[in-house]
Amino acid sequence: MDMRRKCFLFKDVFFSYASFQNGRRDRIPGTPLPPETFSLSIPYLELECSRPILVEGPNGSGKSTFLKLCGGLLTPRQGSISFEGTPLFPFPSRAPNRSPFVVYVHPTPYLFKGTGRDNLLLPLGWKGVPVQEGERQLAKVISLFNLESLLDRPYWAFSSGEAQRLALGRALLAEPEVLLLDEPTTALDREADHLIDRLLGYAEERGISLMVASHDPLMQRRCTTSLDISRYSSFHISEHQGDFS
């Protein structure tokens, strides 16, 4: 297991979807926000993620937004986010044949055209993993998530739960430093508890840290640390910015 200290550092971070609604991604501090805008404001946060972290909060409190900020998929309007000292904005360009730093798994994942096997092998191709090594990693993930029956099925023939299992396997094959899971068990069946245990075991074995947004009691029990995101978020209803800081 990788014992390095993996840490996200948030400094004066302010994010609002208002910038996207306008089709703009400006980061000008103090720009007035339109009324009824969700925003996330994190003055300072040091997040050690060597143990699985549960991101908590009611619906609409910004769990997905927080995970996407950690994954470099959203850009804050102001402030900085770094992982192990590397700023996430602009998104760090990965050196060829290297794993991505952080991988985010959507609650309703996107499956690429092709079969289940194609979906699993695609990130390995981007990483430049040799075929034999890729097949060895693939075999392990297949047995971990019971994916044998899904390998030759076309992408449009999966149920939500099967797609979720496939996406989890695909993300693990990318071998990131941190895996961000957004409601990973919503579509899973009663086998989910075994799957979660196997996922946590595999991640620990490969040195992959986990950050999970979930309402699943099973997942909540397995995570040793939690972060309540609702204290950082607000639903801005005033015409003047500043009352949420």
Binding site: P100, V102, V103, P109, R170, A171, A174
Partner: peptide, 13 residues
């Protein structure tokens, strides 16, 4: 957007 985010996060460049 879902496709774009999936590609970026899985390391496509």
């Amino acid at each position: 957007l879902l496709l774009h985010e999936t590609l970026i996060t899985l390391g496509a460049q």
